[in-house]
Amino acid sequence: MNGLVIIFALVALLAVFSTLSALKNKNVLGILFGFGTLGIFGWFTIMTVIHNGYPGA
């Protein structure tokens, strides 16, 4: 279950880059989905770290 936080964090980082790209291109639907993905997966990342802790190496 600890590897799940890594996947959530990677998806959240990709959402940041996609949102910035959509803002640059003035793509309204891309901005909407980018912020939505960032909000959901960012929240899942934070809650997984709080509940299960950060995975060890």
Rank of each mutant, 00 (worst) to 15 (best):
T19L: 11
N52I: 14
W43C: 13
V5Y: 04
L10W: 00
G42T: 07
L13W: 01
L29W: 07
I6G: 05
I31M: 08
N27L: 02
G56C: 15
G56N: 15
T19D: 06
N25V: 03
F17E: 01
S18F: 06
I40M: 02
V16W: 03
N52S: 15
G34S: 01
A12C: 06
L23D: 07
L23F: 12
A9N: 02
F41R: 01
T37V: 09
V5D: 07
W43Y: 14
T45I: 12
I50P: 09
V5A: 12
T37G: 06
F17R: 01
L14G: 03
L23W: 09
M47K: 15
F41Q: 03
G42Y: 05
L29A: 12
G56T: 15
K24M: 10
N27Y: 06
V11A: 00
G39R: 01
F44T: 02
F33Q: 04
A57I: 13
Y54F: 15
A57L: 13
L14M: 07
G34F: 03
K24T: 09
F8E: 05
F35I: 10
A15Y: 01
S18Q: 04
L10S: 01
M47G: 09
F41A: 06
N52W: 15
L4A: 10
K26S: 07
G34D: 01
I7T: 08
I46M: 14
A57P: 14
L20M: 04
L23S: 10
L20G: 04
F44A: 08
N25H: 11
N25D: 11
N52C: 14
F8V: 03
A22D: 10
V5K: 08
P55E: 13
L32E: 03
G34V: 04
L20H: 00
L23M: 12
A15P: 02
F8M: 07
V28Q: 10
F44M: 11
P55H: 10
L4Q: 12
L32G: 01
L23R: 10
N25C: 03
M47Y: 14
S21T: 11
V5E: 04
G56W: 15
I31C: 04
A15N: 04
L10N: 00
L10Y: 00
K26R: 13
T45N: 09
N2P: 05
L4H: 08
G39Y: 01
L13N: 02
L13V: 06
I50L: 15
G53E: 08
G56D: 15
P55S: 13
L14I: 08
L14A: 06
I46P: 08
N2H: 09
T19M: 08
G53D: 09
L4T: 11
L4G: 06
N25T: 09
F41T: 08
H51L: 15
V49M: 11
Y54G: 09
P55V: 12
V5P: 05
A9S: 09
K26C: 08
I46F: 14
F8R: 02
F44Y: 06
M1Y: 13
F35D: 05
G36E: 05
L38D: 03
F35N: 05
S18N: 09
G42Q: 09
L10F: 01
L20S: 03
F8P: 02
L13A: 06
T48E: 14
M47A: 15
M1H: 14
F17L: 10
S21Q: 10
